[in-house]
């Protein structure tokens, strides 16, 4: 099971995570040997400059973002990264004057660990925000589906087709593109498979959605016209015996497509938010 849930996070954290582990092992092996540590002032300064840059970029991201959660969480994470950087500076300072200092080495390890944890928290915060953006696009599609159930007349259907071509199609294309892209980013095979399956379902159901509304509206329209043109009781007889079945079937068909699409979109939103394989397995089990 992969440790990191996206390839980007994995590529950024995995190498340094391994190096931190190696540093810990070496420290444990040579804890009592009194090894001399080289002057780490320069590499520590480079870390500090990189952290300063991240703090600037992070605050800039917060100021331009409309995501309240990101704006709230990001500054706290930046403080953690800054504190880790300060700890590394202190460690380097201590080791410069006392190259054998065990405490200096412990501070170095702690600083490296905190950097790793801080960057991990930062990447997760940022990633969750990116996921929320995709979720919003999915929610737009869901909102459009809610309108579909209200279509009763040919005029409303014509309006919907006009609006759907104008609004729904681009949103669906965008959603499909973003979910596809996200799928390639995920490290968990099960997450990828579930997302792909649900997205394919939505793509398959989209053309059926328009046709199912079309059939429903046409059936209903035919029924209404009969009421207008012939005797009420005769019309009722035709509707019940001949047309009633068609209308009920068309409603069921329309509702099935809408519900299925809504379920799949809900599933996409749910899977997008998962970060560990356990979540999926647990939910599948439930």
């Amino acid at each position: 099971m992969p440790v990191f849930h996206t390839k980007t996070i994995e590529s950024i954290l995995e190498p340094v995570a391994q190096q931190v582990s190696r540093l810990v092992i070496l420290h444990e092996e040579s804890a009592d040997d009194g090894d001399l540590m080289p002057d780490l002032s320069k590499p520590v300064q480079i870390v500090k400059s990189a952290v300063d840059n991240l703090v600037n970029v992070g605050h800039e991201t917060c100021s331009t973002s409309t995501d309240d959660l990101l704006r709230n969480e990001m500054p706290q994470v930046l403080v953690r990264v800054n504190q880790a950087s300060a700890l590394l500076i202190d460690a380097a300072q201590m080791l410069k004057y006392e190259p054998c200092s065990i405490k200096g080495r412990q501070m170095l390890i702690e600083g490296a660990r905190y950097i790793l944890q801080g960057i991990s928290a930062l990447l997760l915060t940022f990633d969750e925000s990116e996921v929320r953006k995709i979720g919003i696009v999915c929610q737009h599609v869901l909102n459009h589906l809610a309108h579909v159930e209200k279509i009763e007349t040919i005029e409303q259907l014509v309006d919907f087709v006009k609006v759907s071509v104008k609004n729904l199609t681009p949103i669906l294309t965008r959603m499909s593109k973003e979910v596809d892209l996200r799928t390639t980013e995920l490290t968990h095979v099960i997450h990828r498979q579930l997302l792909t399956r649900s997205l394919e379902q939505v793509k398959t159901l989209t053309p059926l959605l328009i046709s199912s509304i079309n059939v429903y509206v046409t059936s209903k329209h035919t029924g209404d016209n009969i009421f207008d043109s012939i005797h009420f009781y005769l019309a009722l007889y035709i509707i019940i015996i001949v047309g009633g079945h068609c209308i009920v079937e068309s409603i069921e068909n329309r509702d099935y497509v809408i519900n299925k699409m809504s379920d799949e979109l809900g599933e996409i939103i749910r899977i997008l938010q998962l970060t560990t394989i356990d979540d999926v397995l647990l939910n599948e089990f439930d």
Binding site: T8, I12, L13, P15, V16, Q19, V20, R22, L23, L26, H27, E29, S30, D33, D35, L36, M37, P38, L40, P43, V44, I46, V47, S49, A50, V51, N53, L54, V57, G58, E60, T61, V81, L88, L108, A112, I115, L116, I119, L122, L123, F126
Partner: peptide, 29 residues
């Protein structure tokens, strides 16, 4: 994204720092 690049710079820099610290210890070991 700028933030990912900035995060990568830090892990690269931290990697170089740890490398400097561990290579010295390895030599001694």
């Amino acid at each position: 994204e700028q933030i990912l690049e900035a995060a990568k710079s830090i892990t690269n820099a931290a990697g170089a720092l740890i490398s400097a610290a561990t290579s010295a210890q390895k030599e001694i070991a």
